[in-house]
Design a protein around this nucleic acid. Structure first.
Lengths: 290, 290
DNA sequence: CTTTGTGAAGACCTTCACAGCC
DNA sequence: GGCTGTGAAGGTCTTCACAAAG
């Protein structure tokens, strides 16, 4: 085997320092030396769990975790339909991945399948929920009740269950105290206090970019461990805080890249696999949307 | 990050108005209507997610493309501040990546740096825009004008420039014809026709999951080449169509996973809320200043 | 000197293919 | 026979470290 050095899953880098005159309103941000950045990200190794003692669970690849969430959704739908068992072939097809990958992903949970038969739906659901930490609720705070924040707060309790929105924040005086989706909006200044009081574990940032870092700092001060950032800004956080970002502009630009690639590269003869017509599929299903 | 200076705390523009009648359904989205979602349809795995395909040509890694978009944003902010050149060290710190990765990413564009000096901001901006295909506009259609779709349609022309929203669709009769963000809402049935007429190149799906595949098929029939999917559903598309998904539930579950992992092997203790879900947790604690 | 650009090494993920159990 | 679980092969992306250029 190979001797591995730093284990630790690559999280988002967290060594860099903000530069420029980040106005950041309020920002009492520390100086943060930019130069001499220590290339070797050497956080206190600790946390990584792995090391000490034997662990029953070896770290699951980040990519696999994301897929587990998808499998869970598909399995729940199947269970509701009455299915009791599934094969890796069926489940993988429904989840849009190939079966080998699915089996590998499930193997991180342990061995819960039956050879020659498949997996028991309920068992699998239970195991994935346990692994993803869904056996307990994670209270969510949404910061920035603008268009997006408003939508998030009204998301009917938030996607799937288990993520109750328990706090809302904004800086607009006209919004403070106004209930949105049943929760009154509090002021940004109260983030630390309210997050501690309500035991918030996940913070969602839906503010303009200029306010994002400041809001992030307050969430961290409030003991929030994970942050979902919708603001187009790079956040600086302590090593123990997990950040995931959803950047609409980036997504669109990636799509733009692919459009350009397809259109621009039309040099050769064969590009799009023919099939210009998609064959309008008349499958009109009842859409139950808003 | 730059951004305007001065001004304490960015104000969150919150568009009050809106609302009106229950601003949009909301419909807690019945937990996956048992509709014949037919999870069993197993179209030979194939295609779908993942680059897969034979990227024979030296194409830029997908991961690098996503970062280029971030660099572009950072560079634009720097340019506004008056910066004319940047070193890989500065830019990488501001973008939250390490400098080697940044240089490697930029090398996909060609050689636009000057050794011993750095990169010229304007030149870099131009090259990234060219590579991402941002030199032309990509018209966007938003389908599903619920909470989220409404927010997207009002996103002020959409993140950054270059992605004008040119069409909106929904199935609700009360919404058809009503202008949102300046564009009147059309019916789902008109997707193919309208997309062709207005030369839409990117479709954004913000409908409930049950309607997603049907909407997707219509977008494809309308010649849309790229789709950004916010619905928690796996989409089946022809090879020449690019799909990216943004799944809120998945993001939260990934964060949940990390929270659980940090909480350690045990520590259950907390749990607290023994209440059955029901939701509305009392917790009407103060903080309601108004 | 400083900083870019890049081969090479390595970490990470995916895919293959088959042994092993039903 | 059918299907899972997994070592090993194969790719992709990241990091290292250094030669080349200014």
């Amino acid at each position: 085997m190979v001797a591995q050095r730093g284990r630790r899953n690559g999280r988002n880098g967290s060594a860099p320092a903000a530069k420029s005159a980040s106005d950041v309103d309020n920002a009492p941000t520390a100086p943060l030396p930019v130069t001499g950045g220590d290339p070797t990200t050497a956080p206190t190794g600790a946390a990584s769990a792995g090391g000490a003692g034997s662990n029953t669970t070896r770290s699951i690849p980040e990519a696999a975790v994301a897929r587990l969430a998808v499998y869970l959704r598909v399995l729940s739908a199947m269970a509701e339909q009455g299915a009791t068992t599934v094969s890796s072939e069926e489940l993988s097809a429904a989840a849009g991945v190939n079966s080998a990958k699915l089996r590998k992903d499930l193997s991180y949970l342990g061995s819960y399948g039956t050879r020659g038969v498949g997996y028991e739906v309920e068992v699998l659901i239970g195991q994935i929920e346990r692994t993803l930490g869904l056996t307990r609720k994670h209270k969510v705070a949404v910061v920035g009740i603008g268009n997006l924040g408003h939508a998030l707060a009204n998301y009917g309790g938030f996607p799937g269950r288990g993520f109750p929105v328990a706090a809302l924040f904004d800086i607009d005086p006209d919004l403070i105290g106004v209930p949105v989706g049943g929760i009154p909006v509090s002021h940004l200044d109260d983030i630390p206090k309210v997050c501690v009081e309500r035991d918030i574990s996940i913070g969602v940032i839906a503010t303009p970019p200029a306010a994002a870092q400041s809001v992030c700092d307050r969430l961290v001060a409030g003991g929030v461990q994970s942050i979902l950032n919708f603001a187009p800004a790079v956040l600086q956080v302590p090593d123990h805080v997990e950040v995931r970002k959803v950047d609409l502009a980036v997504e669109l630009q990636i799509l733009s890249f692919h459009v350009a690639r397809k259109a621009g590269g039309e040099v050769e003869g064969r590009e799009a696999d023919g099939n210009a017509e998609g064959g309008a599929d008349g499958d009109a299903k009842g859409a139950v949307m808003s």
